[in-house]
Amino acid sequence: MSSEKNSALHSVAVRVDKVTKTFPNGDTPTYALREASFEALAGQLTMIVGPSGCGKTTLLSVICGTMQTDSGRIEVFGQDIGCMSDAEVTAFRSRNVGFIFQQFNLIPTLTLVENASVPLILQGWPYRKAEEKAASVLENLGLGKRLRSFPKQLSGGQQQRVAIARALVHDPRLIICDEPTASLDAKTGHHALELLKQSACRQDRCVIVVTHDSRIFSFADWIAEMEDGRVVKSCPAAEYRHA
């Protein structure tokens, strides 16, 4: 299966074109991204893989606009992130991006339903409505009986489910996951990815997962491999696994 065939079925959700990002390091800057180019399609779960320090997380950061690039162009659902002001990027993220972090980053003093409702509250939803919506998403993810629990009362897998609920609650078009299985054992990680794929993957939505956990490659539709700041290989997951 070729990439052309895939593009015909799915529209391009994220396009990264020759993006370079350096970090100051004395006189010589350190290159995190070297003219990296990459595309992720809507309706697919795309994994960015590669060894530690290859630039996966930096690529993820520039895609969602939490980090600025030195050069190159990034389009997310047709909108050029680089041309937006800080406030516009923040507003864009708030509406269009859902995050699942490696450490979950659930606020420990908020209940599950309060944590999951945060993206809606940030968009200005009234508290009650936001909590109702968050509760229904948590119920769909099997946490309906733990709505008023606090994150520390849950297992790692359950916390990951709350993080998934928080990422999905405001119905974003782009879901960004940073090492979603890193804090979980193999079985729980597998289960979390299954759940993510079930609940997040939709025709109009793009899911990008950064990972170096080869055990979860089977969940990907598309895999982009990075090395030394460049995307060196980008192909359908089956092709990548076969290779």
Binding site: T90, S94, F101, Q103, N105, I107
Partner: peptide
């Protein structure tokens, strides 16, 4: 102690005035 969560809020779209 809350810096990590505040950063997460920032990433999720909380602007500095908020």
């Amino acid at each position: 102690d809350n810096l990590r969560y505040l950063a997460a809020l920032k990433a999720m779209g909380a602007r500095m005035p908020i």
